[in-house]
Amino acid sequence: MDIKLKIWRQSGPKQAGFYEDHRVVADPHMSFLEMLDVLNEQLLEAGKDAVAFDHDCREGICGACSMVINGNPHGPRAGTTACQLHMREYHDGDEIVIEPWRAAAFPIIKDLVVDRSAFDRIQHAGGYVSVGTGSAPDANTIPIGKRESDEAFDYAACIGCGACVAACPNASAMLFVSSKVAHLSLLPQGKVERKVRVRKMVAAMDAEGFGGCTNHGECSAACPKSISVDAIALLNREYMFAGLARD
């Protein structure tokens, strides 16, 4: 299948970017990233600069791949990362526009690669449990309700890819932050620091320059783990209850 590509090229963080047209002959069984690998082989053979894009596990669990494909972060399939998208979704002759995540807090490093260390700094601010938990406890020594454990697990599914920020009309990181806050505050080990955690993580989120939630729900639609926007309501509730608790 013959695919026309329009890809964002930007040689460095300070350089101006532009869209570049390419053609690739792809196999329907290829993953989207394999199609880009083919493009890069072509570019390298021609002595040109390969398109830089983030990728790691290529099995949908690491959160490295990050590109907006025809206006959809991670492409058109719900609950699917870009690496798990396959060329069979497309038809011969299709034009595909590929852009990086666009947010002030995610500055572009090169082409489609953005710096997502803002997420790391938010996580460092409070997205952890600092009580001494020792080695892994025996199963079922701390009883946790089925509903709580299911809910915590749903929020823990966040892979920190940043698609929520990319999809949000306000470039808000609240689905990411709320997933971390909700997952930890629902479990007994995380409850100890819940007040301090939510205050610190929200302060870190604001300091990074992300926008605010205006309840569009686009984050959840783009999330490759289909995390519910309910997380954001839970974050708001946690934040209100935390009030002005001291550090």
Partner: peptide, 27 residues
């Protein structure tokens, strides 16, 4: 204040961003 923060959070526009769930009123 919130609108200014939101605008600063996305200085560069997308070629096109598909809206899936939001409404005209929300936008």
């Amino acid at each position: 204040v919130l609108i200014q923060r939101n605008q600063r959070a996305r200085p560069e526009r997308y070629a096109g961003l598909e809206q899936k769930r939001t409404s005209l009123a929300a936008m």
